[in-house]
Nucleic acid binder design. Structure first.
Lengths: 116, 116
DNA sequence: TGTCATGTGTACTACATAGTACACACTTGT
DNA sequence: ACAAGTGTGTACTATGTAGTACACATGACA
């Protein structure tokens, strides 16, 4: 599923409950032209900038990192973290590339809880 | 120190030993115009593309991830790893943002050795 | 002394990114 | 019936990215 398809689906879903989620109204709140949002949802243009994706995420209660990933992007703050210590983070990420999801999940939890 | 400064320094250093490291010769081997490499080294243009940075890294025996970081970029293969599981990797990286370097280093080692 | 390589200044270009602006046809509530 | 809101087609634009092409002055060296 493309970025545009997903946005359209989520927006329409919100719309069933609230009427305030027309293309025009959402576009106005995230400060882009309605025609542009329409094109995004129909995949007539590439996904928008990180800034616009973040506003969309907030408006639709979606995870910004997931939306960015669907758009083929990585959050600038994550890039910044990597850039500060490129060797260590590059090695860590490449080691974890093929890690099964439960293992990765456990690692995240352990790091969070300080058990390491 | 900027990307350009660093490249100039490393290239000149290699040159003291080998004569094959003039701007022109290196430029030819990495397949860019000499004038362009010259401008890169003097910071007259922004750092080049990932592709060109990788060729420079190989030519000068430098770590590509470090050069990319100096250029304000993150390797596309690392971005790809994050994009495949954005939630987990986003959380992991943000948790490790402030981790002291020895701790990070230990974690990398532990993951590498499978002690986890 | 001529030639050869060197570094660099200037001008230009192709393509991508991230949108805006406006008009139009259709539907819908009153 | 009509005003208001809706989604969208078309045309255009500004800025960034990633370079190329060529000419020129300088220095080395045989």
């Amino acid at each position: 599923m493309t970025f545009g398809d997903h946005i359209r689906e989520v927006r329409e879903q919100r719309r069933r409950e609230s009427t305030a989620f027309s293309v025009r109204q959402v576009a106005q709140r995230i400060e882009v032209e309605p025609a542009y949002l329409s094109k995004i949802e129909r995949n007539l243009v590439p996904p928008p900038s990180e800034r616009t994706i973040r506003r969309l995420a907030e408006e639709l209660h979606e995870d910004p990192d997931v939306l960015l990933a669907m758009a083929g992007k990585v959050s600038l703050d994550l890039q910044e973290i990597i850039r500060r210590r490129p060797r260590r983070f590059a090695e860590l990420l490449r080691q974890l590339r093929e890690a099964p999801d439960p293992a990765l999940s456990r690692l995240v939890r352990e790091v969070r809880d300080g058990d390491w």
